[in-house]
């Protein structure tokens, strides 16, 4: 039995279904992300784990204990909110100490644990400040320290990095990962940022319209998307409709890979290459944009536009207006059979 188990969870607000038929097991110490567009039910799921929202149906168990009868304040979970929700009228140290006070921890121990927690997030000397005197990144760390200091059974992170700018977000991702590994706290992260989910998680739960689309390791979910939704939501992807021929699957008459039945081929832009020999899909470069560490090309093919990403590694890249031939390795592509809806 997993450490945190969600069984057949459903949440409906009147006729609107926010979450439906959700089954999820989280192992102890695992870092799991709920990833999906806004309105996919990921935040509702988090709220149900936290106890702020009651599931319409289904059971949530933590370490074999049914959570549904436990009030939110008795669940002992650490939560970092998107807005941080720091107590503006308390100092940073008082914010972090709050949860310990609720647990009637002794004064001396509180002081010691608050110090430790603040040191862990790199704010050892900022305990006397008020939240408003701190930057967004610092407030984020306070929120994290406040959630972790109570040694929660589970750490719930609700879009914790979405209010930070891009550079800071990347730094905090690394730090968050490090802190989580160090403390070994089981963590559930809710995010709409695929990059964040890929960078942080042991496993990713991709959600869409209240349903789970796919659960898997970041590498699996990215490389072997289980549905067209996952393929397009996680990174960019090219799709071609392919017909079987005697020599394999062909796009617009050009054989691209083996296969016997009509299918849709999905291929990541960075997996498409230019070839000078053999079979491939002919095309013409419409635009070429330099993006620092890579080039982004739009290639017009007989089966629509194809996005190609080439690393800036010194090899020549075709210019705008040039004709090219596109090819990819069969194992990089994923197939969904025509007629079946993912």
């Amino acid at each position: 039995m997993p450490y945190l188990a969600l069984e057949n969870i459903r949440k409906a607000y009147g006729p609107a279904v926010a979450v439906d038929r959700l089954d999820l097991g989280v192992e102890k110490g695992e870092f799991i992300s709920l990833l999906g567009p806004s309105g996919c039910g990921k935040t509702t799921t988090l709220q149900m784990i936290a106890g702020f929202v009651e599931p319409t149906q289904g059971a949530i168990a933590l370490d074999g204990i049914d959570l549904s009868r436990l009030a939110p304040e008795k669940r002992g979970l650490g939560i970092v909110f998107q807005s941080y929700a720091l107590f503006p009228h308390m100092t940073v140290a008082a914010n972090v100490a709050f949860g310990l006070e609720m647990r009637r921890v002794g004064k001396a121990e509180i002081r010691q644990r608050v110090e430790q927690a603040l040191a862990m997030v790199g704010l050892a000397d900022k305990g006397g400040r008020y939240p408003r005197q701190m930057s967004g990144g610092q407030q984020q760390r306070v929120a994290l320290a406040r959630a972790l200091v109570i040694r929660p059974a589970i750490l719930l992170l609700d879009e914790p990095l979405s209010n930070l700018d891009a550079k800071l977000r990347e730094e905090m991702q690394l730090e968050l990962r490090q802190i989580q590994r160090q403390s070994g706290t089981t963590t559930v992260l809710v995010t709409h940022d695929q990059q964040e989910a890929l960078a942080l998680s042991d496993r990713i739960v991709v959600m869409n319209q209240g349903r789970v689309e796919q659960i898997g390791s970041p590498f699996d979910v990215y490389e072997r998307p289980g549905s067209a939704f996952v393929a397009t939501f996680l990174g960019r992807t090219n799709t071609f409709s392919a017909e079987p021929t005697s020599r394999g699957l062909a796009v617009a008459g050009h054989v691209m890979m083996p296969g016997e039945r009509p299918a849709t081929i999905s291929i990541r832009p960075e997996k498409v290459d230019f070839t000078t020999d053999g079979d491939g899909l002919p095309g013409r470069v419409l635009t070429r944009v330099f993006q620092g560490n890579h080039w982004l090309l739009h290639v017009e093919t007989p089966d629509g536009l194809c996005l190609v990403i080439r690393p800036n590694d010194g090899r020549p890249v075709p210019g705008e207006g040039e004709t090219v031939v596109l090819a990819f390795r069969a194992r990089d592509a994923s197939l969904s059979l025509a007629g079946s809806t993912p």
């Binding site: 936290a50 669940r75 998107q82 503006p88 949860g99 609720m102």
Partner: peptide, 27 residues
Amino acid sequence: MDKRIEDAATALGADRITTYRRIVIPL
């Protein structure tokens, strides 16, 4: 007032009365 602030207090183990006394009223 950010409703999440209260949720945060609840999640940290504060009961309703404590949340009012320590968080809501001061705010």
